[in-house]
């Protein structure tokens, strides 16, 4: 599944942009601290496995070079000795390859748990920012939200756990009767920054759609020609044509979960990305509208320093 994922989701741009604000479906309900601890430990062990594998590979390559040199010099005794060592080292390499594959899968699972926990924390922080009264508290929460966003992006990148993305909705930050003009402008700036982020995501998604449409055209071109040749047996003149995509009477067994974008067919991926783009555009427009509303209120009459405990609650 991993090579497939790498092939079909090469867009680091989308990963960077989307992962800043995206959430994954909740998996196991572990706490953020537990998920972070499990992921960090698994990542450290996986990196250790990769180091061990690299060391074995280096030794293996060095032995192979020595063996080739011995064979060139027709030194049978040395060559015979080296052949055995190359064989042993090859077996070790194979074992480490298997371990690396297994640990990679475990790392992906740990990453998915952590991404789920980070996503839930993002939701909590957004709600807390909405409810916060003191500017110092709001600033602290925003800083934490930013850190969580960055951690989300980092985990996504280093684990490769890119699932079908879901956008985080526009935060429900409201106008409070106690807000000063500065608070309003602050909220407007926050909403504007969200709108800019959604804009970036829209552009990234459009690039992804365009890339997949080109791939789809190439795939359909090949599939159409092979279909035309096999339909009337024109390909039988050479004993049968190439297997058609998705054909082969049994077809490829599909055991992976469809939650991973790369496992969807290209038309399904394009449809999913189009939906995501529409949603991102809606969120961008909404964020921009709210930013304008905050700014209008900040610059207009009727804004004053709020009284503790009072919230309008109706405006958004």
């Amino acid at each position: 599944m991993f090579p497939l994922l790498r092939r079909m989701l090469p867009a680091a741009v989308l990963a960077v942009a989307v992962t800043l604000t995206l959430a994954v479906p909740a998996t196991a309900q572990v706490t953020l601290a537990e998920a972070e601890e499990a992921y960090t430990a698994q990542l450290a062990w996986y990196q250790e496995v990769l180091r061990q594998r690299a060391a074995v590979l280096e030794t293996h390559e060095r032995l192979v070079e020595q063996l080739e040199a011995a064979l060139r010099e027709r030194d049978q005794e040395v060559a015979s000795n080296l052949q055995g060592r190359v064989h042993d080292q090859g077996l070790q390499l194979l074992r480490w390859e298997t371990v690396a594959e297994r640990e990679s899968e475990l790392l992906r699972n740990a990453a998915q748990n952590l991404l789920g926990a980070l996503s839930r924390r993002q939701d909590e922080l957004s709600e807390q920012i909405e409810r916060s009264i003191l500017p110092i508290t709001t600033a602290r929460l925003r800083a934490e939200l930013q850190a969580v966003d960055q951690r989300y992006g980092q985990v996504s990148r280093e684990s490769g756990a890119q699932l079908v993305p879901q956008l985080i909705p526009v935060p429900e930050i409201r106008i409070d009767l106690r807000d000063s003009p500065a608070d309003m402008r602050d909220k407007a700036d926050f909403m504007e920054s969200r709108a800019v982020l959604y804009d970036t995501i829209v552009v990234s998604i459009e690039r992804e759609i365009a890339s997949r449409e080109r791939r789809l055209r190439a795939t359909r071109g090949a599939d159409g020609l092979l279909s035309d040749l096999s339909r009337f047996d024109d390909d039988l003149l050479t004993g049968g044509g190439l297997p058609r995509l998705g054909a082969g009477a049994g077809g490829r067994a599909e055991t992976e979960t469809p939650l991973v974008l790369a496992d969807l067919t290209l038309p399904e991926q394009i449809a999913a990305l189009r939906l995501l783009r529409e949603q991102a555009e809606e969120f961008r427009n909404l964020a921009r509208e709210r930013a304008e509303a905050f700014r209008a209120r900040a610059d207009g009459p009727g804004t004053r320093s709020g009284m503790p405990g009072l919230r309008s609650g109706a405006e958004s």
């Binding site: 055209r217 190439a218 090949a222 020609l225 050479t238």
Partner: peptide
Amino acid sequence: TLRAIASTAVGLDLSVTGYLAL
């Protein structure tokens, strides 16, 4: 028997496909 097919989009909404069997 050797068979090969290649297909790619080449801009202007065009795609080109080639097939060879020997």
